[in-house]
């Protein structure tokens, strides 16, 4: 028998000596642009029922807690607090929902294998990650604005119904709504970045919750140390708290906390996107 090892011959029945005209795609002008990647990610995000469920539960809880706190306050007979201070009381639940949404947009697609199909269609992975981040940021920001406006409106109605003064000062309300919505949007991008790094939805949520809830508590245990105090002030939970209650905050502190709040998700996204670009899909 002829040995077949390293067997190789040129040509093939279909092509030997034949001139094969090049096949050209007939689908019309196709091209990857950043805008198209954002559109694709928007379809990816809102074509899953879980996105609606998570955002509805997170937003619903935030609204409910805000309303309950307002009702409790008005029932107590106290008059000190302004109505807008209740709108962001339950924002942590919306932050958890934002984290889950961000984590899901990467981790769910990764674990199902859908991300591989996506990367085969659009191989520039960093661009795709930036498109995911943009989609998340804009979507969560818009939903955050709606949530906070509705929460503020509910608190204002309760205040007005109980005969309290409702001061509609745009100089306070607009920064509060935009700041709160920005925090939710940044949290979702933080979730995306961490998920890209650890490739697990559950682990991502755990890491972000530890960052938001556990680390700040641990740091307070050693708050007498100067370096611990500095670190505490640079924690994501601390700096975003400034953005959600931007009342009577010095301009330089607001700017610093805004920049640090942006730096956290930006760093997570940069590290996550680099990891995604370097490893096998």
């Amino acid at each position: 028998m002829t040995s077949l090892s390293s067997f190789s011959t040129p040509g093939s029945p279909a092509t030997s000596g034949a001139v094969v005209p090049p096949y050209r795609s007939q689908v019309g002008p196709a091209r990857i642009t950043f805008g198209r990647l954002v559109r694709a990610e928007t379809i990816a995000l809102f074509s899953l029922r879980s996105t609606y469920v998570v955002l509805l539960i997170g937003g619903g809880l935030t609204f409910a807690i805000s309303l309950l706190a307002t009702l409790a306050f008005t029932a107590s007979g106290l008059t000190e607090a302004p109505f807008f201070s209740f709108a962001t009381i339950g924002l942590l639940f919306a932050q958890i929902a934002a984290t889950m949404t961000g984590a899901g947009l990467y981790a769910k697609e990764h674990s199902s294998g859908s991300l591989r199909t996506q990367f085969a269609a659009a191989p520039r992975r960093v661009k795709t990650m930036l498109a995911k981040a943009t989609t998340l940021f804009v979507s969560v920001f818009v939903l955050g604005v709606v949530l906070l406006v509705v929460s503020l409106a509910a608190s204002a109605v309760v205040f007005a119904a109980t005969g309290r003064t409702v001061g509609l000062d745009a100089g306070i309300l607009v920064p509060l709504v935009l700041g709160g919505a920005t925090v939710l949007a940044l949290t979702s991008v933080l979730g995306l970045g961490v998920a890209a790094l650890v490739r697990s939805e559950a682990l991502t949520i755990a890491i972000v919750l530890v960052l938001l809830l556990v680390v700040p508590v641990l740091l307070t245990l050693a708050a007498d140390q100067e370096w611990v105090r500095v670190i505490s002030e640079l924690m994501f939970s601390h700096t975003t708290a400034t953005l959600t209650t931007p009342v009577n905050v010095a301009g330089d502190v607001l700017l610093r906390d805004a920049l640090v709040s942006i730096a956290w998700p930006a760093a997570a996204l940069a590290i996550g996107a680099t990891a995604v670009a370097r490893r096998d899909a």
């Binding site: 002008p29 091209r31 990857i32 694709a40 379809i43 074509s47 029922r49 769910k108 996506q118 269609a121």
Partner: peptide, 16 residues
């Protein structure tokens, strides 16, 4: 959890 059409639509959208 995605429909067949949504899966194809998101892939198609990447390349326009």
């Amino acid at each position: 959890r995605r429909t067949a059409r949504a899966h194809l639509r998101l892939l198609a959208a990447t390349n326009g």
